[in-house]
Design a binder for these strands. Structure first.
Lengths: 249, 249
DNA sequence: CAGGCGGCTTGATCTTGGTCAAGGGTAAGC
DNA sequence: GCTTACCCTTGACCAAGATCAAGCCGCCTG
């Protein structure tokens, strides 16, 4: 993975270094399958550049003019909305292979902040070029629509979580979702480092950080997981799923 | 407005009666502005038929195969997700000029139920035809993307409401949002009939029906609104907005 | 017109999660 | 290596909203 970068001797401007989509191991997450070589080349040409974002920096902020969407190559992000009175709502956590910035299409302004929770790199997908290309490449168009739609469905899931679940159910759902997405990327399902703080988890789940902390402790007491700061091991996936289905009290 | 229909003497099968988009007074809500006559004709051709839905019936249900999205001509809908254990989360209320069904694009299956809360009529927009046409008509493509994106942003708003607001703030936000959307359709801003039950409002807002009822009563005591069953008058819009900004206790 | 039902309101009580506070661990910076 | 700052945990207490319960209103149906 990091072979490429550690072996390089000659200094290269990585911003200009082109890692073609056609070569990217995240391809199946970002692009439709079944594109012809020629079509893939055109996609490669569209994604002209990449951008590195340091931990803590914003990829974009609410109010920025919308020009592109972003495919995450490496790193981990949160998106959030800040209310006038300062309250924060984290609307999602995004990892490699996922797409950021679609909130801006509707108004040509970004409506939320996207912040790197660890050093990250994204592919910049200029949206007008994407629209143009997807008018010509039908599978690309279809894929874009699917990505947009899945975001809507994902949001419905979060609404359901916030509207109907109690604290421990929410955290169980959160851990299981994270685990599942890591598996899809080839990582271990049961052991991982959280990139976000308890407060950010709490904001996402509609809970206070103390409640998140207590729920972690409770899960640990019950033998469902082990917690050491941000290092989580899931010991009993089935048990976590039961927490989810155990509705009410 | 209703001149057209009241003046018709000859009985006509309204299912076959074509009310062209080009003639529809909701056009500016469904379609981009600036289409040429020729383009509008092609859109008219695409939207082949309409469908009436009786109060209480579903336009589509979770699990149905996805084939079309729907533009509401008349009536009022709710969309909801039912969890395995029976819990319901209402994900939105939709009125004339709004678009339903975009949750199905991602998986080719609808992921929620769309239920008419009053007798309704929708325009059926076959999605493959819409994709095809939007590959040719750039403003149509752009518009579709904006509609999808705005749905995402709307969902973020609901997530914020569910994640950070207390009961009375939620209800105030709900009433103001409803009022604003009615105004955009030429209705009175301050007086309207709720089409949904307290329980459905509660599900949408992540509250129990009793809490919704109490919040209504509280607003009435405070002189912000009058409530008679489902008939609402907003007496003090500014006051409701203050409830929203008054954060915490 | 009577009866029944669905939906709404209101009160009393309980529970979950929020709030406030103290203390400890870890990692980054001097 | 020490200090500092951030993050996390845990406890005690509190309050918002859920739950349980009773009764009412208005509408639909027979």
């Amino acid at each position: 993975m990091s072979n490429e970068s550690t072996q390089k001797i000659i200094p290269i401007d990585t911003h200009k270094l082109k890692v073609a989509c056609s070569q990217c191991n995240l391809r199946e997450l970002c692009l439709p399958i079944g594109l012809s070589d020629q079509e893939l080349t055109r996609v490669d040409d569209m994604i002209g550049s990449r951008r590195k974002i340091k931990r803590g920096q914003n990829l974009y902020s609410a109010g920025d003019t919308f020009e592109a969407i972003y495919a995450i190559r490496t790193g981990f992000f949160k998106t959030d909305v800040i209310l006038e009175d300062g309250r924060e709502q984290v609307t999602g956590f995004q990892m490699a292979g996922e797409v950021l910035g679609m909130d801006g299409i509707g108004t040509d302004l970004h409506t939320c902040n996207a912040t790197a929770l660890e050093d990250a790199e994204v592919c910049i997908i200029p949206f007008d070029q994407l629209e143009s290309l997807s008018r010509e490449i039908e599978p690309l168009q279809r894929h874009l629509h699917k990505v947009l739609s899945r975001e809507i469905v994902r949001d419905h899931g979060v609404m359901t979580l916030l509207g109907t679940m109690r604290a421990e159910e929410r955290l169980a759902a959160f851990l299981l979702n994270l685990s599942q997405r890591l598996v899809a990327r080839g990582y271990a399902a049961t052991e991982f480092h959280l990139r976000m703080t308890r407060e950010e988890i709490g904001s996402y789940l509609g809970l206070k950080l103390e409640t998140v902390s207590r729920a972690f402790s409770r899960f640990q007491e019950d033998g469902l997981i082990t917690v050491q700061q941000k290092h989580i091991c899931i010991l009993d996936t089935a048990g976590l799923k039961q927490v989810l289905n155990h509705q009410a009290c």
